[in-house]
């Protein structure tokens, strides 16, 4: 009793929907017979690896140096011409799923403030249970001999402070939890 489900075959086109951080959306369809289509327009893109270890994209007779600087599952950070872009690559199914989840999911009530770079905590302004507004200075992080103000990205109540003055923190360490 085989699945009476639509069979996949290799000549079938592959389709991906790639989403940028700022709502940019690209649809890539590739099939061995038709080639590549970007947003339904036919495009010719070539990828070249040179002997020095750089990778380029050749497009319209222009060379763009490119590299993947971060990847986590389907989330990519691509560096092209020295500028980075964040993309999530979705299949038609996962794209549909994403839209549904965004619509139905309750937004998490807890926001996390994480360290943007490794450094040392110089001063903590935030106090537990204090009410803070978006843009308030929470603490000062010293890195590369510069003191950086870490601002709150959301308004709410400080639920938990994970660090104290003088602590050394790594990149992406969670410094504070804020409850909306």
């Amino acid at each position: 009793m085989k699945l009476s489900f639509k069979k996949r075959s290799s000549s079938e086109p592959v389709k991906y929907i790639t989403l940028g951080k700022d709502g940019k959306k690209y649809e890539f369809i590739y099939s061995p017979t038709d080639g590549l289509r970007v947003n339904s327009k036919k495009q010719d893109i070539e990828i070249i690896d040179d002997a020095d270890g750089f990778t380029y994209i050749k497009f319209k007779n222009k060379k763009f140096p490119v590299e993947v600087i971060e990847q986590n599952q389907n989330k990519f950070v691509i560096l092209i011409n020295g500028v980075s872009y964040n993309y999530t690559v979705e299949t038609p199914l996962s794209y549909q799923r994403k839209q549904i989840i965004e619509k139905t999911m309750k937004k998490s009530k807890t926001g996390f403030v994480s360290a943007p770079m490794p450094g040392k905590i110089i001063e903590v302004f935030a106090e537990e249970n204090a009410i803070i507004n978006e843009g308030d200075v929470l603490l000062i992080l010293e890195a590369m001999k510069m003191q950086n103000e870490i601002l709150s990205t959301i308004s709410g109540v400080v639920k938990k402070i994970n660090i104290k003055q003088g602590d050394n923190v790594n990149k992406d360490d969670i410094l504070l939890e804020i409850r909306q």
Partner: peptide, 12 residues
């Protein structure tokens, strides 16, 4: 667009 393509290319 090319950056998006490169992400997709790697993922695929």
């Amino acid at each position: 667009m090319l950056a998006a393509f490169f992400a997709t290319y790697n993922y695929a």
